[in-house]
């Protein structure tokens, strides 16, 4: 089976001419099927840029970046948009639409698939919310939920479309320790049960235990790539 993420010798720079600043230098990164990889490192190490490249949110400048079997180097905008539909994103903040209920927010991820009907979308959204423990809150708007609950809705939204890959950026940044742990373990359990690979950027040491592998970055390069000590803790 193909690796969901296969990045080779990717170099990326912001700015041009004298202002050019390389943030990634010949980075290699691989995420295997069903693997949970945590990308860590200090601010400015380039880990977030790497994540946006893997998420097809930026155009690849140099090197090869294959995600879910699609080469992103030289890919057109429309191809990148299409690929993004097969990736589940989880952000630092939940970014839910405040005027939609939790159920409607989750169903938004399914509206991109023309093969689904309204009823099916809402049923799947309800089932997904139930599996993140929010069955009773499906009709509430984000403003009526706690921070941890909102992030769980975001997890449900990322997973409901059965993505081939989940990309998460500091998903616990806005949460206290307990809710952070809860959300990340939930994410790990759901991904495991479906065999979905996760690439997660964090420098929160409290959640490193969910990883199969921890990749450390510094100054635009990968400096360590180790199997995690406490797999499946």
């Amino acid at each position: 089976m193909e690796n969901p993420v296969e990045i080779r010798e990717v170099t990326y720079a912001y700015g041009e001419g004298a202002l050019r600043r390389e943030v990634l230098r010949e980075v290699d990164l691989r995420v295997g099927p069903g693997e949970i990889v945590i990308l860590t490192g200090p601010s400015g190490s380039g880990k977030t840029t790497l994540l946006t490249l893997a998420g097809a949110l930026r155009a690849v400048q140099q090197g090869s970046c294959r995600v879910l079997g699609r080469e992103l180097a030289g890919a057109r905008e429309a191809e990148r948009v299409a690929l993004r539909r097969r990736i589940g994103f989880i952000f630092q903040s939940h970014n839910l639409l405040g005027f939609l209920s939790a159920r409607q927010n989750v169903a938004m991820a399914l509206e991109l698939d023309g093969g689904t009907g309204e009823r099916e979308r809402l049923e799947r959204a309800d089932a997904m919310l139930a599996s993140v423990g929010l069955a009773e809150h499906a009709g509430k708007q984000p403003g009526q939920l706690s921070g941890g609950q909102r992030q769980r809705v975001a997890v449900a939204r990322a997973l409901v479309g059965s993505p081939g890959l989940i990309l998460a950026d500091e998903p616990t940044a806005a949460l206290d320790k307990a809710s952070g742990q809860e959300v990340v373990h939930l994410l790990r359990d759901l991904a495991r049960s479906r065999g979905t690979a996760i690439l997660l950027v964090t420098h929160d040491p409290r959640i490193l235990d969910v990883a199969d592998r921890i990749v450390a970055m510094e100054d635009g390069r990968v400096v360590a790539d180790d199997a995690a000590r406490a797999v499946n803790g």
């Binding site: 097969r86 991109l112 093969g115 997904m128 599996s131 479309g161 759901l190």
Partner: peptide
Amino acid sequence: MSDLRPAARGAMRAP
């Protein structure tokens, strides 16, 4: 979780 059957993969088309 066992209730959740992932939808057929690759069948996605834009509305």
